Computed example of a mutant assay.
Amino acid sequence: MKIAVYGATGMVGSQIVAEAVRRGHEVTAISRKGTPVEGAAVVRAAELGDADAFREIADANDAVVLATSPDRTGGSREPYIAAHRAISTVPTTARLYMVGGFGGLATPDGTRIKDTPDFPALYKGESDAAFTAYEALRDAGADLTVQAPAAVIVPGARTGKYVTAVGVPAAGDTISSQDFAVAALDELEQPQFRGTFFTASN
């Protein structure tokens, strides 16, 4: 399979690249600076909001993984949202696979976790932006799957073991970025959650 990964040098994106390469897929690693990524067949620099570049990349791959995240340094998150709106207008046959946020999952009564009273204010803006970006792609009718992590995602061990749930949190509060990538590649290779907003946790 040919897989393009935006955000290929980040904590999650780099692990998705590594897992895809481990399984023998042809990977295009995309970052703003075009930083080399071990194992990638193609490395290129591109901004996610560059619709022409996105069209070219999507046309050349079977799946495009969106592993970018909203600004976490206090800057505006509008460019992140605008980038997703820009690519939502690009017709493509490639499957879009978005790394979503835990806050986009729902409680049993249907409330988004990001909108619950106990959700940390520190992460509220980031979660709102990530969900708005997801809505832009969803509403445009993209062949979109979103995988959210558990409440905590950190680098750790690749155990290959995880549990999943659709729309709501899965059992377990954490997941390693390595196992998140395992779940992502399992889904890309053998789809079970196509078109859903699902989550994986250890």
Rank of each mutant, 00 (worst) to 15 (best):
Q178H: 03
T132L: 15
K33S: 15
A157R: 12
A129W: 11
A58N: 08
P155K: 02
L96K: 01
V21M: 11
R158V: 07
P91S: 10
K161W: 07
G156I: 00
G141D: 03
P70V: 08
G156H: 01
P149T: 00
M11W: 00
G156A: 05
A136R: 05
V43P: 06
D186G: 01
D118V: 13
V5G: 05
V64H: 09
K2Y: 10
I3F: 14
R158D: 08
R72P: 03
V163D: 13
Y162S: 11
V146Q: 03
V154L: 14
D173S: 14
A67W: 04
S69C: 09
I3T: 15
I113A: 02
D139F: 07
A40Q: 06
T93H: 14
A51P: 01
T89Y: 07
L105W: 00
A133S: 15
V17E: 08
A4H: 09
Q15H: 12
T9N: 02
Y123D: 09
F197T: 02
D173C: 05
A200R: 02
D62F: 13
L185H: 05
G13I: 02
R23N: 12
V65R: 03
V154P: 02
G141A: 12
A157W: 05
V65G: 07
L105M: 06
A82P: 07
A51S: 13
A20I: 11
G195V: 03
Y97S: 04
T73H: 14
V152S: 10
S176W: 00
Q15L: 01
T68N: 12
Y6L: 01
L144D: 10
R72T: 14
I113T: 03
A53F: 05
L185T: 04
T89V: 09
T9F: 02
D139C: 07
Q190V: 14
A150K: 01
R72E: 05
A171T: 15
A86S: 08
K124S: 11
R194W: 10
A181M: 04
P120Y: 14
Y97A: 02
S201R: 00
D128V: 15
G125E: 14
T68R: 12
A94I: 10
Q192Y: 08
A200S: 04
A4V: 04
E26Q: 15
